[in-house]
Design a protein around this nucleic acid. Sequence first.
DNA 1: TAGATTGTTAATCGATTAACAATC
DNA 2: TAGATTGTTAATCGATTAACAATC
Lengths: 235, 235
Amino acid sequence: MRKRLAMYHQIALRAAEAGQSQISSGPLAALLHVDDSLVRKDMARAGIPGLQKVGYPLTEVLRRLEELLGLDERNDAILIGCGHLGAAILGYAGFSTYGLKITAAFDIDYAKVGQEIAGHRVLPMEKCRSILDIFRVRIAILTVPATAAQPLTDWLVGRGIRGIWNFAPATLTVPPGVVVRHENLAIGLARLIHGLKDATDRGPVGVPDDATRSGGAEGGRRREATARARRAAKS
Amino acid sequence: MRKRLAMYHQIALRAAEAGQSQISSGPLAALLHVDDSLVRKDMARAGIPGLQKVGYPLTEVLRRLEELLGLDERNDAILIGCGHLGAAILGYAGFSTYGLKITAAFDIDYAKVGQEIAGHRVLPMEKCRSILDIFRVRIAILTVPATAAQPLTDWLVGRGIRGIWNFAPATLTVPPGVVVRHENLAIGLARLIHGLKDATDRGPVGVPDDATRSGGAEGGRRREATARARRAAKS
DNA sequence: TAGATTGTTAATCGATTAACAATC
DNA sequence: TAGATTGTTAATCGATTAACAATC
């Protein structure tokens, strides 16, 4: 459901940009490949009143969905680890839509400290504590090596961080009350590969989760993953 | 279901590393917060036979799941756009698990051509065509500016690319037979923020999709998103 | 044997679709 | 009015859980 709401929002945004002022359940349903009554139900549940014969006013749709999806809130975050991935995130344009502002970027490497990346000055880790105390930031973005992730997390949680967006390939343990989101790029990739495989196996059928699918494309070559699994099972 | 299979795989891997040789439905179910009969059903559907009294042999679990999830295949890909994000992906360790190998990295910027990033030499875009012709790569990773994404996609599809992993903030149109996966970092973020909000609203209840959730944390500050929506709706 | 665990069937639940009356 | 579209109720479908017999 949340996914659908997010999609409605995207579609509504584009419709608004294209000059429309309302949108009806039919087109929305068609775009999401669901029944139009489901769209109406979603709208009703979201508290967006429609107008018979015309549809749903885009202003209302956008307003409510942004409220519901939390896009109307402002969230400050700090970023730790200014390697390539950290830099990519600092420069990522899409966040402002979601009200995210990275208020400070840190790195332990003094070679990086002082550098400016996408308008952010890299600060030394020593400054992190005082920044957190002063600004009461609740979200931390971790783009550090895997080994550093858990100890850093413990420390951050102790300093008041309540949401962690973890890009390190490490599973984090946190106390109750703290939300961790583990961003595993490899999973996105796995899904794409699977989508390709699906398209091959079954032809243009089924919508693999997030992906735009269809016909052709051959599968990849085999590897001997079995040997690896066996090694792991024995070690 | 696919998500659960992937989780079983992860858990099985760790169990194997910890020296176990089998795993039973109970612990798996507890870790995923589902009923144990569902785990057994999944195993049955996946064609993994269990042993009464002992559980499922890890070697078998890993072997079948890797087969099913396509982790046992080898997939070559090219990467286009060697900015920060491209560089981060070139250096990302986790891909080998999924059999992905980035065989070539390209950039139009001659300042980047010739540089070595995480063991990959950056090639000029002009070389892309011949590389594709020679190696028959099917997957392309796009870490280019939004404006470049669609024309590049069209060109790549014409050269035989069948799977596109798009990091550019642009919606791509592709012909049937081509799979696009749009990786929107902002969505991961949105979910984290939402997880935080949920934790606030409802206390430690419900597992928000991917995230490890729980108790405390206050919501963010309001912004006037309404004004923005209204602008969009009018423009 | 007793205990643990699988495999499977029936029951439940929630989400989606189908149908249609209300109404602008 | 006629047509389009919402809002809602009933029917369907699929996924999950509960229960339990089989069995190592």
